[in-house]
């Protein structure tokens, strides 16, 4: 059954299916038997992929799976196909500017209802002593400002939304 996976900017589609008494993974036609053992007392598990065995730590939280493998830590995001399609394309895909990194709002330059031109600064955010301007990605009207001056936010938090344009 298919899912879309994102790891550190790399996106891959894969399918999980039953195989013999366990499971197999198919990534782009490459199919391998896989298994994950139950956790030992320190939380570590053994992951088998084809012929290879790895000692891993795996924690799942919502759509994210945190994996420590071969000394490195990764975050794997799992997205269902219908969600991928819902987010893809369309004139109204980019309605909202989201925070590129965690930070705080330093200043807000606009109000709901304001007409803005492409490139105009909407809001200034600060993160790790670096200031970044959030600018309008197209001409439009501000629909909502989601954060107030002084508010702290995480990455991907919606900051400013523009009104959806009518589809031709």
């Amino acid at each position: 059954m298919r899912r879309h996976f994102e790891i550190d900017g790399t996106a891959l589609d894969a399918a999980l299916m039953r195989h013999a008494d366990g499971y197999a993974l198919d990534v782009g036609g490459e199919r391998q038997a896989i298994a994950l053992s139950p956790a030992t007392s320190d939380g570590a598990q053994t992951l088998r992929v084809g012929d290879r065995l790895y000692r891993v730590h795996v924690v799942r939280d919502g759509d994210e799976t945190f994996v420590q493998i071969a000394g490195r830590s990764f975050t794997v995001r799992t997205i269902e196909p219908l969600t991928v399609f819902a987010h893809a394309g369309g004139a109204n895909a980019d309605l909202t500017a989201r925070a590129p990194m965690p930070g705080t709002v330093v200043s807000v330059r606009i109000q709901p209802g304001a007409r803005v031109a492409k490139g105009e600064t909407l809001m200034v955010i600060e993160s790790m002593k670096l200031e970044t301007a959030i600018t309008a990605w197209r001409d439009g009207t501000v629909e909502a400002v989601h954060m107030a001056v002084g508010q702290t936010f995480d990455r991907d938090t919606p900051l400013v939304s523009l009104v959806a344009e009518a589809v031709e």
């Binding site: 196909p81 219908l82 399609f85 893809a88 394309g89 369309g90």
Partner: peptide
Amino acid sequence: AAGSEQEALAMARD
């Protein structure tokens, strides 16, 4: 209504 054949088939599965 689906935006693509891929989406339509995913909807059918759902």
